[in-house]
Simulated assay, not measured.
Amino acid sequence: MEHDSALYVGLDVHKDSITVAYAAGSGEVELFGKIGTTQADIDRLCKRLQSKARQIRVVYEAGPCGYSLYRQLVQKGFECMVCAPPLIPRKPGERVKTDRRDAVKLVRLVRTGDLSAVYVPTVEDEAFRDLARAWVSAKDDMKRARQWLKAFLLSHGVRYTGRPDWGPAHRRWLSAFSFGNLWQQLAFDELRRTIEDHLAQCGRLEAALREAVLDWRFYPAVLGLQAMRGVQFTTAVGMLAELGDLSRFAHPRQLMAWLGVTPSEHSSGNKRRLGSITKTGNSYARKLLVESAWSYRHPARVSPEIQRRHEGIPKPIIDRAWDAQVRLCRRYRKLAARGKNANVTVVAVARELAGFIWDISRLAMSLAVPREVHAQCNT
């Protein structure tokens, strides 16, 4: 039997089970029960729900299970929302948490519109993001392996007299060094071999990423962002892979808030109190943003490296990147002259840098990029 009123469905999703609750219109919330997570279980659930109403709105919390369930439900014709768990309202003193309670709570909150949806990337964007994250993880593993080798050498009183920057000279010294004890030499060789393996893995992933980005729909934005100071290929790809479609932000302040670089606030009456930044949203994108902002502590100029990246880029993007450099360098000097801490100053610059990233990305997507510029990412 079909009803005209909307059906609100809340799902508490786990690896092996899904707890389902629903409510028809403004009626009481009912518990459907617990189902499995296989395709057949989802199909049976969809048939049962479709027999109850024409319009069905489903919500579940973002978690480690990803967005496959979201795509299955959308394909079935349902309205689906993946909500942000930290932004779910919670009553003070609420101490009991179960799967049933969570499912019922989601139904009530989606009916009143008190949930905040997360951005669900397309299948292609998610695949590119997975590749970019694999590259980042490989670089982190290599960094940890290098730290372990340095700590191992330091614990045995072995010090490199030059600059330990893992350049050719440093690596030649490591390959020629040996311990007198056989067991220590075995441990040293394994640590050194681990670094070489991670280095080769990083090279393979970077080559795959540079090849894949040529066919990515946000490739014009990758080129446009590299026209800015402090934004190279690593930063541009990593940030856009995490941000996704920037057109979903109607104003740059929304992007700043999503990155967590806006100040927290606790105001009451005539008193306005601003605190540290919120640090919400994607931590890796915020890290890249702050690292890029450090380059604006120097006077504004176009280095040969930046000039090389400008080749073939439309002039409006280059002009906007120069405007950003002039403004942000001046901003850093003004805050530093007022005695602000360097870290506080850089975060303030990073907040404005996010606005320029929003503007240049949208500008780059709207302008045609010559095909010959595409070779820049492979250099």
Score class of each variant (00 low, 15 high):
residue 247 S to A: 15
residue 18 I to A: 01
residue 241 A to N: 00
residue 220 P to N: 06
residue 294 W to I: 05
residue 7 L to R: 08
residue 30 E to R: 15
residue 309 R to V: 02
residue 307 Q to I: 01
residue 92 P to N: 06
residue 35 I to Q: 07
residue 36 G to M: 07
residue 142 M to Y: 01
residue 166 W to D: 05
residue 296 Y to H: 02
residue 1 M to P: 14
residue 306 I to C: 01
residue 358 W to T: 03
residue 203 G to F: 04
residue 281 G to M: 06
residue 110 V to E: 09
residue 204 R to Q: 11
residue 352 E to G: 07
residue 173 W to H: 13
residue 58 V to N: 04
residue 160 Y to V: 11
residue 26 S to R: 12
residue 290 V to N: 00
residue 178 S to A: 14
residue 11 L to C: 09
residue 209 L to C: 03
residue 84 A to H: 15
residue 343 N to A: 13
residue 45 L to S: 01
residue 94 E to D: 15
residue 173 W to D: 12
residue 107 V to F: 04
residue 16 D to T: 08
residue 320 R to D: 05
residue 326 V to N: 07
residue 149 L to H: 12
residue 56 I to Q: 10
residue 77 G to L: 15
residue 230 G to F: 04
residue 119 Y to D: 05
residue 254 Q to M: 04
residue 110 V to F: 04
residue 142 M to P: 03
residue 319 D to L: 13
residue 216 W to M: 01
residue 365 M to Q: 14
residue 346 V to T: 14
residue 224 G to C: 00
residue 128 F to D: 00
residue 319 D to W: 06
residue 258 W to L: 08
residue 83 C to G: 07
residue 128 F to L: 15
residue 307 Q to E: 10
residue 288 L to W: 02
residue 252 P to S: 07
residue 62 A to V: 11
residue 222 V to P: 04
residue 283 S to Y: 05
residue 328 L to R: 08
residue 53 A to S: 15
residue 247 S to P: 08
residue 250 A to K: 13
residue 1 M to Y: 09
residue 204 R to A: 12
residue 48 R to D: 12
residue 27 G to F: 08
residue 160 Y to S: 05
residue 106 L to F: 09
residue 325 Q to N: 06
residue 304 P to Q: 07
residue 170 H to G: 10
residue 106 L to G: 07
residue 205 L to K: 14
residue 75 Q to G: 14
residue 117 A to N: 10
residue 277 I to C: 05
residue 103 A to P: 04
residue 300 A to S: 02
residue 176 A to S: 11
residue 277 I to P: 01
residue 148 W to F: 07
residue 143 K to P: 02
residue 208 A to Y: 01
residue 87 L to N: 07
residue 193 R to A: 13
residue 156 H to N: 11
residue 282 N to M: 03
residue 71 R to W: 07
residue 270 N to T: 13
residue 34 K to C: 07
residue 359 D to P: 06
residue 4 D to S: 12
residue 78 F to G: 12
residue 20 V to Y: 02
residue 54 R to E: 12
residue 372 E to K: 09
residue 52 K to V: 12
residue 342 A to N: 08
residue 60 Y to R: 04
residue 356 F to I: 05
residue 2 E to W: 03
residue 241 A to T: 03
residue 188 F to A: 07
residue 123 V to D: 02
residue 55 Q to F: 01
residue 300 A to P: 02
residue 216 W to N: 05
residue 307 Q to K: 08
residue 13 V to C: 00
residue 110 V to D: 10
residue 239 M to K: 00
residue 169 A to G: 09
residue 165 D to F: 03
residue 122 T to G: 14
residue 284 Y to V: 02
residue 357 I to R: 00
residue 184 Q to G: 06
residue 243 L to P: 03
residue 216 W to D: 01
residue 50 Q to I: 05
residue 268 S to W: 09
residue 307 Q to P: 00
residue 238 G to L: 03
residue 276 S to T: 07
residue 306 I to P: 02
residue 60 Y to H: 09
residue 240 L to C: 10
residue 105 K to L: 14
residue 72 Q to V: 10
residue 364 A to S: 15
residue 3 H to K: 07
residue 25 G to W: 09
residue 348 A to C: 15
residue 227 A to C: 11
residue 153 L to E: 09
residue 354 A to M: 03
residue 360 I to M: 00
residue 190 E to L: 12
residue 61 E to F: 08
residue 147 Q to D: 09
residue 152 F to W: 12
residue 118 V to P: 01
residue 307 Q to W: 03
residue 268 S to G: 15
residue 372 E to S: 13
